[in-house]
Design a protein around this nucleic acid. Structure first.
Lengths: 189, 189
DNA sequence: AAAAATGTAGACAGACTTGTCTACATACTC
DNA sequence: GAGTATGTAGACAAGTCTGTCTACATTTTT
C-alpha cells in the first residue's frame, strides 16, 4: 500500500467521479463502478458503507482537487482582482475538460431531492467553500472593504450562472460572458 | 371531454410535473405517476408513447405556464427596466412556491446526460425562450441599443445563478442578490 | 507464526424499472 | 346502431438496482 501511490480506494473514487459526472449519480450503478474500476464488489463495500457514502467522498475530493488546481493556476498572481478574473479562465478550461458536465454540486442536488441528508449537507458545505474563496479575495481589495461580501455574492452568482449555462449550451461562451461582467464589476472600484 | 375542463391527459402531466420537480425525473416511476394521478397505465401510454415523451410535454408546459404567469405579473408595467427587475420578484415567489426545487431545465439535463436527444433539445429550446424574454426587453431600452444582447446575457446569467443557488441554500436570498445586481447594472444606462 | 487488514469472485435476495398485453367498460360520432 | 376514441385494472416480461453473503487469497502487522 505504501509502495504503490494509487490505492484501491482511490481508484474506486476516481472511477466513481468520472461516472457520476458523465452519466449522473442515479444512472451509475455500483456494478458499473466496480466493473470499470476492476475491483470486487466486496472491496467497494469494504471502503464505503453505501453508495451514498461513496458520493460524499466524491463530492469532498472533487472540490479539494478543484481548489488545489485553481491555486496552482493562480500562482504568481498577487492582485486579488486579477485572481478573481483568472478564476473564470480556469473555470472555462475546467468545464471544457469535463465536457461541459456542469457543477457537480448543483447536479447532485438536482438528482437527490432529500434535503438535510448527508449528500445535501456536503453540497452546501462545498458550495460555501467556493463562495468563501471569492469573499476572501474581495476582502483584499482595498477600496471595497465594506461591500466585499455583497461583491463576492454577485461574482459567485455569475460563476454559477456561467457554469450551468455552459452545461446547457455545451459551450464556453456563457462563462466568458460572466468573466466580462465581472471585469466590468471590478472596474467600478 | 368538452364538458370537464381538466382531461385525463392534463391530469397526468400535472401529476408528472409535481413529481418530476419534487423527486427528480429518474426517481419518479411511471407506476407512481399513475397511482397518484389515479389513472390506468394504459391511459398514460395512450397519450404518451414513452416516459421520455411525457417529459418533453412537461418541459414545454412548464415554461408556457411560467411565461404566462410572468406576463400576468408584469401587466401594467411599461418600463422595460422595471419589467426586468420585477421578473426577479416573480422568480422569488415562484421558487418559494416550488419549495426551492431549482430550474426544471437545468435539473433535467443534470439527470439525463444523453445530449442531442429529445429532452436535451427541449431544454435548449426553452432556455433560449427564457433568454429571449430578457433580450426583447433590453432591446427596448433606448440608451442601450447596441449592447442589448450582451446586457441580456448578463441578466440571464444572474437569473440562472440566483435560481440554482436558491436551490442549494433553500432560501430566496441569492435571487434577491441577483436582483440588486441587475438594478445596479441597469442604473448605468 | 498467528492474526488482522485488504483483496477477488460471484451468487443471491428483494425490490424496483419501463413498456406490452389482454380483457373489458364507457362515451361520443357518424 | 355500428364504430371509434378513451378509459380502467392488472398481469407479465426482461431488465435494473443496492446491499449481503460465502468462500477464499494475499499482504501487513503484531
Amino acid at each position: 500500500m505504501e509502495t504503490q501511490e494509487i490505492t484501491v480506494k482511490e481508484h474506486i473514487i476516481q472511477t466513481a467521479t468520472r461516472l457520476f459526472h458523465e452519466q449522473g449519480y442515479n444512472l451509475t450503478g455500483i456494478n458499473q463502478i466496480i466493473d470499470e474500476a476492476g475491483v470486487a464488489k466486496a472491496s467497494l463495500y469494504y471502503h464505503f458503507p453505501s453508495k451514498e457514502d461513496l458520493c460524499v467522498a466524491y463530492l469532498q475530493r472533487r472540490n479539494n482537487i478543484w481548489l488545489a488546481g485553481l491555486d496552482g493556476f493562480l500562482k504568481g498572481i498577487r492582485d486579488p482582482k486579477q485572481k478573481i478574473i483568472k478564476t473564470f479562465d480556469y473555470r472555462a478550461l475546467h468545464l471544457e475538460k469535463n465536457h461541459f458536465g456542469g457543477c457537480s454540486y448543483i447536479k447532485i442536488i438536482s438528482e437527490i431531492p432529500q434535503r438535510g441528508e448527508k449528500i445535501d449537507q456536503q453540497v452546501v458545505l462545498q458550495k460555501e467553500k467556493q463562495r468563501n474563496f471569492f469573499s476572501e479575495l474581495t476582502g483584499q481589495i482595498e477600496e471595497v472593504k465594506k461591500k466585499a461580501e455583497a461583491l463576492a455574492d454577485t461574482i459567485f452568482l455569475l460563476f454559477d450562472g456561467g457554469t450551468v449555462q455552459c452545461q446547457v449550451y455545451r459551450d464556453t461562451a456563457p462563462i466568458e460572458t460572466a468573466k466580462k461582467a465581472v471585469i466590468q464589476l471590478l472596474r467600478e472600484y
